[in-house]
Design a protein around this nucleic acid. Structure first.
Lengths: 206, 206
DNA sequence: TCTTCATTGACCAACCTGGTCAAAAGGTGT
DNA sequence: ACACCTTTTGACCAGGTTGGTCAATGAAGA
């Protein structure tokens, strides 16, 4: 696992989603394997049959999910794009789609980033290093500053734009908690996102 | 407690700070009274002499801190102010000062807000209701929209401004973790905050 | 010395943890 | 019906942590 074959993918998805949820809500140490098996609707034994320890489960899950996340992002992003709003929109669309099948994916990835339990910290670091996120930061450092109006500090404006969409994402997530995942209409969310884009373009761009 | 007299306030502060820190980092359930007494440098017995239970400690602390927080805000805010940047600046200054004596205060208040442990949820709600935060929201709904440029959606602009300063505050807090509290110079932080104010005023105001 | 009150920390039962393993259930070919 | 093999179960374990107690100690004043 994962991909050790002869396990039906429906059950695999249940394990992934359960573990993702419990780990992201509690962090490594506090997350309980009992809670995970209960959430996934499987027995304790079978979890430890697939994964040799809690640590193994955690690290496998991290590797699996960050690989998948990176893959989806890479496949769909236009790496030549230099307009910050266009980049943010592309990333948002991809995140929204992932959210529907893996609701806690982004929370999990964030929680791993902030994890400081000694038992897993070193291995997390190793896995993180093996990811080529270098070009991802290049994407954001390559933004065309020429589009901003005179007298506008481009670096600060970019920071404001980033914080705005971070805040927007948090707000959407809070809303999503109080309704079923199926009720989140991608179009509605993107329309609201675009209204913020319009406001900021009108204010910052020439 | 709190204010049951015959306890020197230096020790009281140590208990407050320790409990605030541990509760804000772990939430009600996971927070351990052992960790609190260790952090405060007192014995287990004396903590349960002052507070009859963990629950009592938690609720007393919440009441004490939210009272104090509200008091400081009320005493220093100009309630006639209708310029959003001026309001945010005033609130920021007060928060910064509180941060120096009670570093985890704001984190604690936030964590209580998100707490969902059944054992304390009801009482937290009761205490929360007794706070007159109604006029606090009025402060933000009373903002002068006439200052915004034509064609700018004032409600959305206010949201952007709010997210920007929320993001800024988070960034400052992350920085603060990697240096001693004494090294945070109020003036530096306020100067940077003002540079964002300038940017947003230049972009949103007439 | 005696009394009073604040303070200590070893101790407790209850609970929860990650992990095991004998046994049951399910599947397939004969 | 049987035998054989793999998958899955959940009661069980030792180790650890929890909130809370209480007999004992210290300090201070009379």
């Amino acid at each position: 696992m994962f991909h050790s074959l002869n396990i039906d993918s429906e059950k695999e998805d249940r394990i992934i989603n359960a573990a993702t949820k419990v780990f992201s809500e509690n962090g490594y140490k506090r997350a309980s394997t009992n809670a995970i098996v209960k959430e996934a609707g499987i027995s304790k034994g079978i979890l430890f049959h697939y994964f040799k320890s809690k640590k193994d489960l955690y690290l496998s899950l991290y590797e699996h999910l960050s690989d998948m996340f990176a893959e989806k992002i890479y496949a769909r992003l236009d790496w030549e794009e230099r307009d910050i709003f266009e980049i943010i929109r592309q990333v948002s669309v991809i995140k929204l789609e992932l959210f529907k099948t893996y609701p806690d994916l982004i929370n999990f990835l964030n929680s791993v980033f902030h994890e400081d339990e000694a038992e897993v910290k070193e291995e997390v670091e190793t896995i993180r290093e093996s990811l080529t996120d270098s070009s991802f930061t290049k994407l954001f450092s390559n933004i065309d500053a020429g589009k901003f109006r005179e007298g506008i500090d481009a670096a600060k404006a970019i920071q404001v734009i980033y914080w705005t969409f971070e805040g927007f994402a948090n707000q959407q997530q809070a809303k999503a908690k109080s309704m079923s995942v199926a009720d989140i209409y991608k179009e509605d969310v993107l329309a609201e996102l675009d209204s913020y884009t319009d406001l900021l373009k009108k204010s910052f761009y020439k």
